[in-house]
């Protein structure tokens, strides 16, 4: 639990996430799968700031893991070995990626997409702004829930989700006007206030990702 994951740049984090998926495709035996899963558990444990987000991601991937295990059990001759291999493989495919994506600093994602990967600047800026509004959605949920609580109204998940959706859409059109009013509509050649730098931590993360992605294929 060092929290180093939050210092890694967005592209390096995405590389780490992708490494889980690539690595899982090279896993052929249960010992290999367990070894790889253990490696990822250690990496996540060392790099995450807390267990909350990794545990939440575990709950998310539990559904595909269980359903793949179930169908493998039913269709694969009820062999515990094959079932366990399938389950662990799906876990490695999905969980590290989910954890890594959660730590991406979406505010800096645009910088790296545009400056490192040379993605068109307007697209990168729009994507970054849109993703940052996801945080605004959390805030809107709170504000709307508070207003409903004050009014003594039920805050069922369906009604709340609909209210937040409507609010978000109305906000998005206002934000779009505000962005265009700050030169976004006419931006031809865009520059970036902050450089997309690569620190030793970033390079280390990418190397680690490469090792975890390639090793299962060469073993």
């Amino acid at each position: 639990m060092t929290g180093v994951a939050t210092q890694v740049n967005p592209l390096a984090l995405l590389a780490v996430g992708l490494a889980g998926t690539l690595g899982s495709l090279g896993v052929d035996t249960l010992p290999e799968a367990l070894a790889l899963a253990t490696c990822w558990l250690v990496v996540v444990a060392l790099a995450s700031p807390s267990w909350r987000h990794p545990a939440f991601c575990l709950a998310l991937v539990a559904l595909p893991v269980v359903s793949v295990a179930w169908s493998t059990w039913m269709l694969g001759g009820r062999d515990p070995q094959t079932t366990a291999l399938a389950a662990v493989r799906i876990f490695v495919l999905a969980w590290p990626g989910a954890v890594a994506v959660g730590y991406v600093d979406v505010a800096r994602l645009g910088d790296y997409l545009a400056q490192t990967l040379r993605v068109p600047a307007r697209f990168a800026a729009a994507l970054s702004a849109a993703l940052q509004r996801v945080g605004g959605t959390w805030r809107a949920w709170h504000d709307i829930a508070r207003a409903r609580r004050a009014r003594g109204l039920r805050r069922g998940p369906g009604a709340m989700a609909f209210a937040v959706l409507v609010h978000t859409m109305r906000e998005a059109s206002r934000t779009s006007i505000a962005m265009d009013a700050r030169g976004f509509a006419a931006a031809r050649r865009r520059t970036w206030a902050e450089p997309a730098s690569w620190t030793r931590v970033d390079v280390g993360a990418v190397l680690l990702a490469a090792v975890l992605a390639v090793t299962p294929h060469v073993m």
């Binding site: 940052q132 605004g136 934000t175 009013a181």
Partner: peptide
Amino acid sequence: GMVTQNPSSSVVAD
């Protein structure tokens, strides 16, 4: 350059 009425809607960065 324009400042719209609802300032929360003009925020584009964290």
